[in-house]
């Protein structure tokens, strides 16, 4: 067979006209903005109930994570995310789904060896790089302050 791998890969790439970018972006904006606006509503509510700014912020995160966990549990989150794309991925809802879905999925392999061992398979990188970059920032901050 006359097969030029490089030309073939170019052809494969050309054919990948790809995702409906405009539609995806529209829904990402709509859902992403909507989730943030919902967060804002929760924040106002918690502040109104007399929580401190910081506690209210944390509680907003916890509430959104709780909602995402429930939606993941009843099997709705993935259907919404198929439309919303980055709109549900990037808010903390996506982090929650990334933790809950492997936990749920690996339940059949045991509560320690399944749920426990697999719970961070998807969300692990986020936690790792958040911690790592935070620690790096801390060291730099400490060193800079030594000389100021």
């Amino acid at each position: 067979m006359n097969f030029d791998r490089r030309r073939y890969l170019e052809r494969v790439k050309e054919r990948e006209s790809g995702s409906p970018v405009f539609k995806n972006c529209f829904f990402a904006y709509l859902f992403g903005g909507g989730i943030c606006a919902l967060g804002q509503l929760l924040l106002s509510l918690y502040l109104f109930w007399g929580l401190s700014e910081r506690d209210a912020g944390t509680l907003v995160t916890v509430t959104l994570i709780f909602l995402s966990a429930c939606l993941t549990g009843i099997g709705v989150f993935d259907s919404i995310a198929r439309i919303a794309g980055a709109g549900t991925l990037v808010p903390v809802t996506g982090f929650a789904n990334a933790v809950v879905s492997p936990a749920l999925d690996n339940k059949s392999e045991g509560l320690v060896t399944g749920v426990g061992a697999k719970i961070f398979t998807v969300a692990g990188p986020v936690l790792l790089y958040a911690t790592l970059s935070g620690a790096l920032y801390g060291v730099i901050l400490y060193v800079v302050r030594l000389f100021l």
């Binding site: 904006y29 992403g32 903005g33």
Partner: peptide, 22 residues
């Protein structure tokens, strides 16, 4: 507050979507 949360939050997600798709 709601408007800005919606507009900026949406924009942050839209940028991520562009990164995924493009």
């Amino acid at each position: 507050d709601y408007l800005f949360a919606f507009l900026v939050g949406g924009l942050v997600c839209l940028l991520a979507q562009l990164l995924i798709d493009l």
